[in-house]
Design a protein around this nucleic acid. Structure first.
Lengths: 340, 340
DNA sequence: CTGTTAGCGCCTTCAT
DNA sequence: ATGAAGGCGCTAACAG
């Protein structure tokens, strides 16, 4: 590890050409005679020369880095988005710096700081602050500042006072698809478990849930809609609360995400007559590994990632793109069809 | 986003001090009079000045970046390691550039290239090439080159001819724990499903599996040990192959990892008399979400991450650390205890 | 304690 | 097609 690093100076000197020439053959898209290009290339190979991206960035102001900040990369939903995003970024010649905040707002701001200092050409936000219905003003101010210095893009969330581009899957549409599906199966008593009041993604889902029930002339029961968080434990807790506080029970339960869905399924096994249909949201790997497999709503992950990156690289004006999700039907809503 | 960026020159000029002074107050650990420090700080705050990390790196050769390359960040095992690693890196003032290769060896080498160009102070490898029993010589050569230019650290794998530091959890020990547990439960007929021959992690597990059976005077059945890969599908496939090619069946099945374990459980539900005990490996979230919950082997994730980072930052000599895993007992081996 | 002055490695006009 | 030279923003001696 103690090679003194080779630079274009060394190459230039050894060949008796200028550094400019070397620089040009590295860049590739400049007129250099075939002869010199060849001999330079030969030397590059000989030393296995790697240009210093840092120096390049300093010189031409293009870091080819984009930052991605998210609260929990271990959550299959977030990691799926990341993978698609990164894949596409790579195609475009960009690398992605991942900041995992563990849901901590301070980390979030710490990472934006680092990314700015690293001259990231854009910062993509998924989850966290941007989903607070009433976001911390200090955090908002910070984003406004960030926005002045680099491109800011948000996924599945947006703060009104920050004027950035955003992509999202239509969460209302997802809930509509779920209700439609359940109603078609004959369910009339439907509950929704999980999430946190004051987080936009939850609020949208709950709001749409109510609206859709009404549309189908079904009754919304207050005690069948329980905020309990986003984890597996949240699903278990929510389910148990439901069981312990209700005499009449719903026949179908919607989890705010797959983890909650899976948690409900787990908890339901501890009760005897568990004749519920379950639905999750995000269609992550958990929706396949659970038993029964979980009917869920699938985001167009690939598009989400692509568009986010495109928005970072775009020179165009701010824009907001909304994509449609898909319902993926699995065992959890098909097993008990006959039992309502 | 079109602020012309403020530099230490601007600050220095506005205050009538030198850039060196400004630089010093930013660095923090240099003697500067309280008075000047204060007025400099005031200006920094006024402009919300962010030092350009790129310029700093170019100047002092410390990028404070470490790279992490892994085949599948969506795999809960890999993402768990990443999270711990990153958390600790952050404490140390480092950021982690994540390269996700999708199991593609070319991507792997593409990322090492990028990381080298970004002047990463170290590269951490988990999975991929380093787990090939017979690694591609070209890839090996590349790692040897990498090693000359930056610190190379590998997790749960190591190539003999590349002399880097490494941390691993003792996979043999994990298998020993599993067999011991199963034997204590009275199992005498045990199978192992999944993995790929020629991948060190698999080879170690299978080898130890055989050895441990012998130690306990149990018979190894060729047809109860099936290589079928690492995914959920692999678990299902392996299980079905087991069922279709055997008359006598084992009573306990070990999956090469949790995904395979979960896959086996899923497949087993399609058969009537599914009286198997199941064990996974890695103790990821899947081991909690499956039903029954999966007994599994837990890596000391936090230590793994910490030590890997320490190895990157260490000035010390190359070293290899081996950590002990833990057996986490859950439903999948406890439900059917009475049935053998 | 503070200022001066070279770089760091590459890119990019501007000449030639 | 190629070379010369300045500059990107910061740090690190070396003076003072």
């Amino acid at each position: 590890m103690e090679n003194k690093k080779v630079t274009i100076y060394d190459l230039a000197e050894e060949l008796g050409v200028s550094t400019a020439t070397v620089s040009r053959v590295i860049a590739g898209d400049y007129p250099v005679s075939e002869k010199t290009r060849e001999k330079v290339q030969k030397l590059i190979d000989k030393y296995d020369f790697r240009p210093n991206a840092i120096a390049r960035t300093l010189s031409n102001k293009k870091s080819r880095l984009v930052g991605f900040i998210t609260p929990a990369i271990t959550n299959p939903f977030f990691s799926q988005v990341f993978v698609e995003l990164e894949k596409y970024a790579l195609e475009k010649g960009y690398s992605v710096l991942l900041g995992n905040t563990s849901g901590n707002r301070e980390q979030e701001s710490h990472y934006t700081r680092i990314l700015l200092e690293q001259q990231a050409e854009g910062i993509i936000l998924l989850g966290g602050l941007i989903n607070d219905t009433i976001p911390d003003p200090h955090g908002v101010q910070e984003l406004i500042e960030v926005q002045k210095r680099t491109k800011l893009v948000t996924i599945n969330g947006k703060i009104k006072s920050v004027n950035n581009s955003s992509v999202r899957t239509d969460e209302a549409e997802g809930v509509e698809l779920i209700i439609k599906h359940l109603v078609e199966l004959g369910h009339t008593k439907i509950g929704m478990i999980g999430g946190i009041k004051g987080i936009t993604t939850t609020d949208i889902k709950v709001h749409t849930f109510k609206k859709e029930l009404e549309k189908h002339q079904l009754t919304f029961h207050d005690s069948w809609q329980i905020y309990s968080g986003y984890s597996i434990k949240s699903g278990e807790d929510g389910f148990e609360e439901l069981m312990s506080t209700n005499e009449t029970l719903p026949t179908a339960l919607i989890g705010i995400n797959d983890m909650v869905g899976v948690g409900m399924i787990k908890a339901s096994k501890r009760f005897r007559n568990n004749h519920f249909a379950f639905v999750g949201y995000d269609d992550t790997i958990l929706a396949q590994t659970s038993s029964p497999e979980l009917t869920s709503i699938r985001h167009p992950y690939e598009e989400l990632g692509k568009i986010a990156i495109d928005m970072v690289l775009d020179e165009g004006p701010v824009r907001d793109v909304i994509l449609s999700p898909k319902l993926v039907i699995k065992e959890s809503t098909m097993e008990h069809v006959l039992q309502q």
